[in-house]
Design a protein around this nucleic acid. Sequence first.
DNA 1: GGCAAAAGTCTACGAGTGTAGAATTATGAG
DNA 2: CTCATAATTCTACACTCGTAGACTTTTGCC
Lengths: 214, 214
Amino acid sequence: MRRPGTKRTTAPVRRRNATATRAAILTSARQAFARAGYDGVGVREIAKGAGVTAMLVNRYFGSKEQLFGEVVADIMARPIILTERTLNSPQGGEEMAAALVDLTSAEGQALDGFRIMLHSASSPRAAEIGRGQIEAHYHKMLTAALRGDHAPQRAALLLAFVAGFQVMRQMVGLSALAECPPKVLVEVLAPLFQQLWTGESRLSRPHQRRRAPL
Amino acid sequence: MRRPGTKRTTAPVRRRNATATRAAILTSARQAFARAGYDGVGVREIAKGAGVTAMLVNRYFGSKEQLFGEVVADIMARPIILTERTLNSPQGGEEMAAALVDLTSAEGQALDGFRIMLHSASSPRAAEIGRGQIEAHYHKMLTAALRGDHAPQRAALLLAFVAGFQVMRQMVGLSALAECPPKVLVEVLAPLFQQLWTGESRLSRPHQRRRAPL
DNA sequence: GGCAAAAGTCTACGAGTGTAGAATTATGAG
DNA sequence: CTCATAATTCTACACTCGTAGACTTTTGCC
């Protein structure tokens, strides 16, 4: 079925290559999980996307669950919104908001990490894997970067807002968010994120906030 | 197997009653969908929760999808967080925050509506049903209640934050949110919600915000 | 008490799932 | 060219899913 044609150029079909095949499966799995979640996609479909048969998936990754774990770990390993620069910036909140709006405007796979998580939250096992990764990467980094009271809670709320925004804009597709010019969204979101970032809330009535003795 | 015993007192097992059985199935389905999402639960499981067999579910509701539609419509018909009082209050944002924290602290079925939506977002069909209900009920009401610029966007963001908070606290189970005293969460959340509610952002640098003429 | 109709259950089917083990094919070294 | 071996596929199994049709049990009415 596959005729030789050109002999040494980059082959149109992948020649037998374990690492390349593994990578292809991983990519296909990431896209598939992002689209339909852990339960919504079958191993055969993932394999088809990588140009192999279903059994090879299990041969390389052991099981569907382990494959999912590798996909999540792989995608969360490289920070997207939380870059080194943002984490050390005093305006980190505003930068987060801008990046979030930007990344949810395009159709790229940039935020696949959260999307996979959200789409797979129905599977208890997948949710557990996701929580571990989120706490280990995003939440830990964010908490360390924040100053002031309740840093862990504020970090978690920042992540929650990222998730909620993505849910409503990309998954549910609320028209007020999906069909809104990015500029407006940033304008509204930035002060909120920045407020969580700095921990200052000069708005409502004064609380009895006891500052840490330090 | 069931001996008569007392003859006319309220029977321990439900006697044959179509409306009661229908209601029982609906309740069981709501709980099941909230726990595991549309794909995560089977008709047999829902039926078991109602004390009937799987076939009766389809007999009453036609199909699993129609059952899901009825559950979502039923649960979104009655407002939970967005009560009449909150919608007309100047401190609506703070009240929303308090109600949200309160409702995600208990294990009640109060916020099942959103939970079902979030857990079922992986099924395209279920997500579509959910979007329609959210836009028709929550978003419409909220937008009408808000004053100031970008009311639809702010309403959508309020909903997004509710969803994100619930995702991270109940589904992912981020420990910083799940194991945090409610008082602290309200303290941090209230100013944010209130800021979205009023549309004023006194924090960051002054924008060129043009107010509506009026 | 008898009986039609409602209420509910039993059995089964076809499709889809994840995955284990055997069989097959291409690859690279001698 | 030869051939061991890694890379890949084929076949099959046990399971769950949603649901259709036939069957059995209870209920209210005369």
